[in-house]
Amino acid sequence: MARMTRGANVALTREIPGLTSLVVGVAWDAGSERVLSDNLVLALLLCGPDSRVLSERHMVFFNQLTSPDESVAARDEALDGDQEQIEVDLRGVPEDVARLVAVVYVNEGTTQRRTLGQLRAVSVVVRDATTHRELVRSEDLAPVLQAETALVLGEVYRHGGDWKFKVVGEGYRNGISGIAADYGLPL
């Protein structure tokens, strides 16, 4: 598959019959901004049909490594050039989860203010978890970022009996708290 622009989507399981697990990753280039690079976090939000996170336990990231049912898990070590990755067993995702929203944010615990506008490049990547083959890569989402401190990268979602992926690329100037408010995530 090719690079995808904001708003584009692809029917993953329809185009790749037998696809049962994915790796959602984020690749970024922070240049010499080491503090920024060290404080970026990838998270996956497990949402119901109303696009709201099911509970506070349905956010997978460095501080909560798996979903309650263990179908979604943060990887200890990112492969293939990604900085962070989260693995998804599509067969194990509970029926009440309609979409998995991938976000990246600047950890608000940093003492020096950093923004995603300082990134030279950032993209979301979806791979087959079994073969590590890249299935989808978004366009570079960095050029339009300025003072944002969080970004919805994309989402894996159910459509009929299939799983699709959509590039979102929506930035938030109020960080993870803005995403939390929009997706009903209690912080």
Rank of each mutant, 00 (worst) to 15 (best):
I176W: 02
R113Y: 07
I176S: 13
D80H: 11
D162K: 06
A73Y: 01
R6K: 15
C47L: 09
R99H: 06
M1F: 10
Q146S: 14
L185W: 04
K164G: 05
A2G: 15
L54E: 04
G171H: 01
A142H: 01
V24C: 05
S138A: 14
V156H: 14
R75T: 05
E77F: 08
V168N: 07
V97L: 07
V167M: 12
D162F: 06
A78I: 04
A2H: 15
A74Q: 07
G92P: 15
A98Y: 04
R127W: 03
L40H: 05
V72A: 07
R34E: 01
R137K: 15
L100F: 04
P17E: 12
A73K: 06
A180V: 03
V152M: 08
R3Q: 11
T130P: 00
D38F: 10
Y105I: 11
D89R: 11
R127H: 05
Y183E: 07
A121T: 09
R91M: 11
S51H: 09
I176K: 11
H159K: 08
D140V: 10
P17N: 09
P17S: 12
Q112G: 12
Q85R: 06
R34F: 00
H132Q: 14
G160S: 13
A30D: 04
T110F: 06
V106R: 01
Y105L: 12
A150T: 13
E134Y: 01
D80I: 02
G81N: 14
E70C: 11
N107F: 12
I179L: 13
V168K: 10
R99M: 07
L19W: 06
R6G: 09
L46D: 01
L119N: 01
R127M: 02
Q146N: 14
G171N: 01
G7H: 11
R14D: 15
S71K: 02
G161P: 03
L141M: 08
A27L: 06
S32T: 08
Q118K: 12
V152W: 03
E77C: 08
A78C: 05
S51N: 13
D82Q: 05
H159T: 12
E87T: 13
Q64W: 00
G109Y: 09
P143S: 03
G81D: 14
R114V: 03
V126F: 00
D38N: 14
F61K: 11
L119C: 03
A102I: 09
E56H: 13
D38Y: 11
V167R: 14
S32N: 03
R14T: 15
L119F: 02
E77G: 05
Y105K: 13
G169S: 09
A8L: 09
A98T: 11
R127N: 04
